[in-house]
Each structure stands twice: as structure tokens, then as C-alpha cells.
């Protein structure tokens, strides 16, 4: 039984390989990028606009609102990163209804890559907001003894992000494959629908957790600066 689309290799030259994960990721990237390009090419700033523009505006403003609700003060600068995570995972999940499509998020390599991006983005935004010294100090809070625990926490939660997404997506695909062999007609359809739901929930969870981590890395700075701004 195949557990990951990584196992489907189309072309390989030494360590460099072109497997289904990369190919379907490119496919998703192409569809998202070209679709966005086509829709946003004729945007109307007025009240009369196309339904596709309305859809994209709803998605973008919804993402921005969610980020704002999580606690990030200026949500617009995080929309690019967090929104893309959500859209990539959600679109990958939705495309599983296409026969023959292998979701890239079913590959541990993809989920690790996404988790690593979050792992890098958290200190990036933390340093950007708070400065390097202030961000590094957050690892020794409340006491210096907490430093190893904080580092472990950073790594483990990144791992958890990757494994959670991979486990959910892989398990869903595996359940469908198993059921397909047992009851080939009804149950795989129902489970595919469940898989869609699970995949969308996972996309939401992944992006919200990433937002929470970024917010945790930047929130201290905010609480300290607020009194200063009041004094000014």
C-alpha cells in the first residue's frame, strides 16, 4: 500500500527527483496563480463587480478578519503567509475529489516543509516586531531555567503541526483506499466527503495555529509598547 505521493516518482537524477508531490504542488500553484491572475486582471473598484471577484474578496477579507480575531494587530502583513497556507491546504484537499489526484499534503515532506516555514516565520515576525534582543529574551521567560523547555516547545509544536496534518490527510486517504477494497461503491464516497471536511478543518487548524504562534511571538512587544504610546 502507498502511504505518500512521494513514492510516485516520474523522473530522478541522483538525489534530484520529480515525484507526484512536487508535480501536483506545481499543478495547484499553477491553478491558484493563473486563476487569481485571470480574476484580478479586471477588478472593479466600484459597486458593480463579478461574482468571482466577490468570492476572492470574501476569502481575502475573511482570512484578514480571522487573523485580526486571533490577536495580530496589523493583520494585512500576515495575510500573504497565513492565507497562502490555508488556501494551499484547502485547495489540495478539495482537489482530492478529482480522480487520480494525489494531495501534496498527504506527503510528510510537504507538511514538514510547511511546518518548517512556520518554524522560520515565527522568529522572523517576532524579531521584525520586537527586535532580536527582545525576541530572544522571550525564551528565558519567566526564568532562565525555561530556556530548554521553550526550545523543545518550539521544535515539538513544529513537529506536531507537520505530523498532525500529514496524519489526518494520510489516514483519510488510507481509510478511503481500504474501504474501496471492501465496499467499492457507497462508503468511499461518504468517506471522501468526510475527508473534504477533515481536510478543510485541518487547513483551518494549521493556519490558525501558525497565526497563534506568530501572535505569541509578537504579542509581548505589543503589551510593552502600549503604555509608551499612551505616555506619548
Amino acid at each position: 500500500m502507498r502511504l505518500s505521493p512521494d513514492e510516485i516518482v516520474y523522473w530522478q537524477y541522483g538525489p534530484i527527483k520529480l515525484n507526484a508531490t512536487i508535480v501536483f504542488t506545481w499543478g495547484i500553484m499553477l491553478v491558484l496563480a493563473i486563476g487569481s491572475m485571470i480574476i484580478t486582471r479586471r477588478l472593479q473598484p466600484g459597486h458593480k463587480r463579478s461574482r468571482w471577484q466577490n468570492l476572492l474578496e470574501i476569502i481575502v477579507t475573511g482570512i484578514e478578519a480571522q487573523i485580526g480575531e486571533i490577536g495580530l494587530s496589523s493583520p494585512r502583513q500576515y495575510v500573504g503567509f497565513l492565507g497562502t497556507i490555508f488556501l494551499f491546504i484547502a485547495f489540495s484537499t478539495l482537489c482530492t475529489v478529482i480522480p487520480g489526484f494525489e494531495s501534496p499534503t498527504g506527503s510528510l515532506s510537504t507538511t514538514i516543509a510547511l511546518a518548517l516555514c512556520v518554524f522560520v516565520a515565527v522568529p522572523f515576525y517576532g524579531i521584525k516586531e520586537k527586535g532580536l534582543g527582545s525576541y530572544l529574551k522571550s525564551y528565558v521567560k519567566p526564568t532562565f531555567i525555561m530556556l530548554p523547555f521553550n526550545i523543545i516547545s518550539e521544535i515539538s509544536r513544529t513537529m506536531a503541526l507537520a505530523v498532525r496534518l500529514f496524519g489526518n490527510m494520510m489516514s483519510g486517504a488510507m481509510i478511503i483506499a481500504i474501504l474501496f477494497t471492501i465496499t467499492p461503491f457507497l462508503f468511499p464516497i461518504i468517506m471522501t466527503l468526510f475527508g473534504l471536511l477533515t481536510g478543510l478543518v485541518q487547513a483551518y487548524i494549521f493556519s490558525v495555529l501558525a497565526a497563534v504562534y506568530i501572535a505569541a511571538a509578537t504579542v509581548t512587544h505589543k503589551t510593552k509598547t502600549e503604555p509608551k504610546t499612551e505616555e506619548q
Binding site: S36, A113, L114, C117
Partner: peptide, 16 residues
Amino acid sequence: VIAAQAFNFLLLIWLM
């Protein structure tokens, strides 16, 4: 693949 996917993701962020 991890590196390629990370790159792909960063590229997708830029494209989006």
C-alpha cells in the same frame, strides 16, 4: 522534496 516543497510554498506565497 522538503526543500523543493518549501521553495514551492515560498514561490506560491509570492505568486499569491
